[in-house]
C-alpha cells in the first residue's frame, strides 16, 4: 500500500492508502474529517468539494494517492479561533441551508468563485458557477444570496 502525506488545513498528515482510495474517503475515513460529504456516485452533486493546491475539485473523483504532497483545504479549516469564515457566517445569516448536506460543498465552491471572479459577484455569475453543486432543499435562492454577501465580506 502506498504511503502518502499531505497538508490538510495547515496540518501535516500521512497515511497508507490503496491505489483506489478516493481523496474523500481518505479525508473522512483516515483523517476523521467528516465535514466533506458524499452525495452521489456520479461526480455531479458537489457535496464533496475541497480545495487542492488552491483549486476547487470534487474529492469523490480524485485518487488520494494522486494528491500525495498536495495542500488540501476542507470546510473544517475555514473558521479561525472559533470565529466562522465570512462565507460560513453569510450562510448562517442568509439562511443558505436547510438540511445542510450540500453546505460544505457550497461554501468551498463559493470561496473558489471569489478567488477566481472577485468579491463583487453578480447573481447570474453565482448561479452559473454553481453548476456543479446540487441542493435538494433550498431552491438555491438563499444560497446565491449567501455567496453574494459572503463574497463581499471576504
Amino acid at each position: 500500500m502506498p504511503a502518502i502525506s499531505m497538508t490538510v488545513n495547515g496540518e501535516k498528515v500521512c497515511g497508507d492508502v490503496e491505489g483506489r482510495t478516493l481523496l474523500v474517503d481518505f479525508i473522512r475515513g483516515n483523517l476523521g474529517k467528516t465535514g466533506t460529504h458524499v452525495g452521489c456516485d456520479t461526480s455531479q452533486c458537489g457535496a464533496c468539494v475541497v480545495h487542492v493546491d488552491g483549486k476547487a475539485i470534487k474529492s469523490c473523483t480524485a485518487l488520494a494517492v494522486a494528491c500525495d504532497g498536495a495542500t488540501v483545504n476542507t470546510v473544517e479549516g475555514l473558521a479561525t479561533n472559533g470565529k466562522l469564515h465570512p462565507m460560513q457566517e453569510a450562510f448562517r445569516e442568509h439562511h443558505g441551508l436547510q438540511c445542510g448536506f450540500c453546505t460544505p460543498g457550497m461554501i468551498m465552491a463559493g470561496i473558489d468563485i471569489v478567488k477566481r471572479k472577485g468579491k463583487k459577484l453578480k447573481e447570474e455569475t453565482i448561479r452559473e458557477e454553481l453548476e456543479g453543486n446540487i441542493c435538494r432543499c433550498t431552491g438555491y435562492h438563499n444560497i446565491v444570496k449567501a455567496i453574494q454577501a459572503g463574497a463581499a465580506k471576504m
Binding site: 458537489g46 470534487k58 468563485i113
Partner: peptide, 8 residues
C-alpha cells in the same frame, strides 16, 4: 461541465 470538473 462545471468549475470543479474544469479544474481537473
Amino acid at each position: 461541465g462545471d468549475p470543479h470538473v474544469r479544474h481537473k
